[in-house]
Computed example of a mutant assay.
Amino acid sequence: MTTNTTIGGSTATVSQQLLDTMNGTSTASSSSSTSGTSANDLQTTFLQLLVTQLQNQDPTDPMDSSQMTSQLAQIDTVSGIGQLNTSLSSLSTQLSAGQNAQAALLIGSTVLAPGSSFAVAAASSGSGDATAQIGVSLPAAASDVKLTITNSAGQVVNTIDLGAQSAGTVPVSWTPTDATGAVLPAGTYTVSAAATTNGQAATATALVASQVTGVVQQTGGAAGLQLANGKTVALSNVAGIE
Rank of each mutant, 00 (worst) to 15 (best):
S109V: 05
P114F: 03
G221P: 09
A195D: 01
D161G: 12
G8D: 02
T52C: 09
T159W: 01
S65R: 10
G220F: 08
L162K: 03
S31Q: 15
A130V: 15
T93R: 08
A132L: 02
L162A: 12
S92R: 10
I75A: 00
L42R: 14
L72Q: 12
A167I: 12
I149N: 00
A182D: 05
T169W: 05
M1C: 08
T159E: 07
D161L: 12
L106M: 11
G224Q: 07
T177D: 00
A222R: 11
I149R: 00
Q55Y: 06
T131K: 10
S31A: 15
S192N: 12
M68W: 11
Q218H: 01
T131M: 07
I75K: 01
L18Y: 03
G98Q: 14
A101P: 00
S137D: 08
L138G: 05
Q53Y: 10
A119I: 09
L138W: 13
A39I: 10
L235T: 07
I241Y: 02
V145P: 06
N229C: 06
P176Q: 05
S87I: 11
A121L: 14
G163E: 04
A73Y: 05
T69S: 04
G8P: 04
I7N: 03
A194H: 02
K231P: 00
G224S: 05
W174H: 11
T77V: 06
T60C: 03
S210T: 06
N4V: 11
T232P: 04
A101R: 04
W174I: 12
L112Q: 12
S124T: 14
A182F: 04
A179F: 15
S89I: 07
T13Q: 14
G98N: 14
V238P: 06
D61A: 15
L47C: 03
S29Y: 02
G163R: 04
S31L: 14
S70T: 15
M22C: 11
T196E: 05
S30G: 07
D129P: 00
T3E: 08
T27V: 08
G98V: 13
